[in-house]
Amino acid sequence: MYSIEIEQVTKTFNRFTAVNQLSLNVPKGSIYGFIGPNGSGKTTTIRMIMNIFYPDSGNIKILGKEHTGSTHENIGYLPEERGLYKKMKVGELLQFYGQLRKTNHINHKIDYWLKKLELGEWKDKKIEALSKGMSQKIQFISTIIHEPEIIILDEPFSGLDPVNADILKTAILELREKGATIIFSTHDMNMAERMCDYIFMIYKGTKVLDGTLADIQDKYGSDTISLQTANGAKALQGINGIEKINDFGQIQEIRIAENYDPQDILKAIINQSKVYKFEITRPSLNDIFIRIARPVNGELQQN
């Protein structure tokens, strides 16, 4: 059962194709991470799901129904570019959004979520008195106050300190526990790896990744080695078969070129330096992202 079904959707602006022939199915109750470089089509995809943009072709079903020309009551949407009415009080503002979404027991829910996100004492304060992090949490509450079945969060963690990011993450997981389907776009690959059941990556308007993290990592194979040597990155100079080196200082991460055996590479390194650690791993999401979005430029290349 899918909460969202996107089928062969294309959207162009003048001559620029923002989203090209995109198909995507978001299972009910899952957390789906949307990743991709800036301007790759994430927000356009989300806006089409929200019916803010109409697709040029293809169709989108929400909870099994196509919806055109209207908004869906069962979606909570937190856009990337978000603002609040500065002159309104926190409680009034949440009441307004709650009423707009026909929420039952609004006051109870407002109190619950304000307390949950540690904002209980700010209910009667004006929005303009809040810090950026607090405003962001209020925006989150206004998005989910009606406890929708689908929650779409565009960059929910941007600009939040680790403490607030953690509070928000807990709230998102609680909503998932209650049965909500959650889509969130992010540039934080660690967060995406840890939170998402599925990852979808769009690049230049085209889907390039879609599946569970394990599926994606399998697809990108076991060509990554994490190692630690006495000479650091210098120990890797001049060794054939190393396609790329990511130098983290204490640890280096290398990608092996096709048709090269890790054992041969290990032997070559041992000839040059003491080796403390040599571990064949699967590539991180961050690595996969960079491989797709920036295949060569700026990376330390080795032939």
């Binding site: 929200m50 803010i52 908004t71 909570g76 937190l78 603002g83 009415y85 707009l100 998005t143």
Partner: peptide, 9 residues
């Protein structure tokens, strides 16, 4: 940037 928040609803 309040507009897009409202357009979600």
């Amino acid at each position: 940037r309040i507009a897009e928040v409202l357009l979600g609803t």
